[in-house]
């Protein structure tokens, strides 16, 4: 028989508290290093597959569909279509947020609505909660709002958010 517990009942029981140490230095590698350096310069870089012509953003050194090395750096626009957007009232530790944080995915140009796989980014979107709730933001064209050059550090955070054009 198992014993369900309430949080406050834990105090009556023996527990072991452990602070995990799991720190990493992730190697960005060839593709993402160049991508991050591109962001520092205000450019969104992708890699193009010579076989099928698909552009990968964030870039990768292989085409997953052709299993062929991608061959060419291409700059895509910092503009695109909002595919989906949501308004978050909780933080990653599940604390309540007063102001919602709005995030979504953006299909970057050049691409077409018929593409199943397209160059795209997951990022914050600068719009109101109401825009999300009413779905007005979906399908809108947005553009990246870049941080000032001196504050960019080669990170996805070099883009503050995407805002409606």
């Amino acid at each position: 028989m198992v014993h369900p517990l309430k949080e406050e009942e834990l105090k009556e029981h023996f527990t072991v508290t452990y602070r995990p140490q799991a720190k990493y230095s992730y190697t960005a590698g060839q593709a993402l290093s160049t991508f991050l350096r591109g962001l520092r310069e205000g450019k969104i870089l992708g890699r193009k597959c010579p076989r099928c012509g698909r552009v990968y953003v964030p870039p990768r050194l292989y085409c997953e569909d052709c299993f062929y090395p991608t061959s060419q750096w291409v700059e895509v626009k910092d503009e695109g279509i909002v595919m989906t957007a949501v308004a978050s009232f909780i933080s990653w530790t599940r604390d309540r947020l007063e102001e919602p944080e709005i995030v979504g995915t953006i299909r970057l140009f050049p691409s077409s609505p018929r593409d199943y796989v397209y160059p795209g980014l997951f990022h914050r979107i600068c719009c109101s909660y109401d825009d999300v709730k009413s779905m007005r933001i979906m399908g809108k064209t947005v553009r990246a709002r870049w941080k000032p050059v001196e504050k960019r550090e080669g990170s996805i955070e070099d883009i503050e958010c995407f805002e409606v054009v």
Binding site: Y24, Y26, A28, L32, F35, L36, P58, M83, T84, A85, V86, S88, I90, S91, W92, R94, V103, G104, T105, L121, F122, H123, R124, V132, M135, M138, G139, S155, I156, E157
Partner: peptide
Amino acid sequence: WDPITEKPLNPNLIWIFAMEMHRYMF
């Protein structure tokens, strides 16, 4: 999430579902 292109935005799990749900609804 991808440690370099996604994790810096401090995402939580519900985001992913919410984004898919909203797209599905839309």
